[in-house]
């Protein structure tokens, strides 16, 4: 029964992913990407990772993809009339890169068989059951003890990105002076 659900879900995920690639309409393509994210979340749920699954939905489907859609709708994207130089041989290089990526992934799958129930997962589950602590607490404990450095570095990276976006969005006149709009003055 679980295997059937797993294969059905796998099919849905791949279908949505193909939808992202082959839709000419950007909004439909983005909606397919939302579908991929949601299907991945269900995948995590099947692997009994509730917390990761719902964080996936909150962050990817709930926030990032909404902003994607928002930008697509604002920009009113059309087919570009002149191909930029870096997209001239996009098909060839894209195909080659995805082939490399596919074989790397296949190798990884071969090495750590992702069948939903790995020995590590069983061990983990037993540990969680035995200790009686919810996985949220285990996860957050790991995050602020063992992985505290990557965690803080990631947050600094995000902060830098935010500040960079603000700096880039500011407008300057010829003398390099910042242009302040009427609204901000009042």
């Amino acid at each position: 029964m679980a295997l059937v659900i797993y294969y059905v879900l796998f099919g849905i995920t791949v279908l949505f992913a193909l939808g992202v690639l082959f839709n000419r309409n950007t909004v439909r393509s983005a909606i397919c990407l939302v579908g991929v994210m949601a299907a991945l979340a269900v995948n995590y749920l099947i692997m009994r990772q509730e917390f990761v699954a719902f964080i996936q939905i909150v962050v990817y489907t709930g926030a990032i993809m909404v902003l994607f859609l928002f930008v697509i709708m604002l920009l009113n994207l059309r087919e570009p009339e002149v191909m930029p130089w870096y997209l001239r041989k996009a098909r060839f290089w894209g195909g080659a890169l995805s082939l490399v990526f596919f074989f790397t992934l296949a190798l990884a799958v071969q090495v750590w068989t992702v069948s939903g129930v790995t020995p590590g997962a069983i061990e983990n589950e037993a540990f969680i059951k035995e200790s009686g602590t919810p996985e949220v607490i285990l996860l957050s404990t790991l995050m602020i003890t063992k992985y505290v450095a990557p965690f803080i570095l990631t947050s600094i990276l995000l902060l830098v990105a935010v500040i960079g976006a603000i700096v880039m969005a500011k407008r300057y006149d010829e003398d390099g002076q910042e242009i302040i709009s009427e609204e901000e003055v009042s």
Binding site: E50, F51, F54, I57, V58, T61, G62, A63, L69, E135
Partner: peptide, 25 residues
């Protein structure tokens, strides 16, 4: 009554945006 309770509610209600956005588009 899942363990992640309130996170589930936040996740699910955040999907509700799509209905309105897509209806508009």
């Amino acid at each position: 009554n899942p363990n992640i309770g309130i996170l589930y509610v936040l996740a699910v209600t955040s999907i509700g945006v799509y209905g309105i956005t897509l209806a508009g588009w």
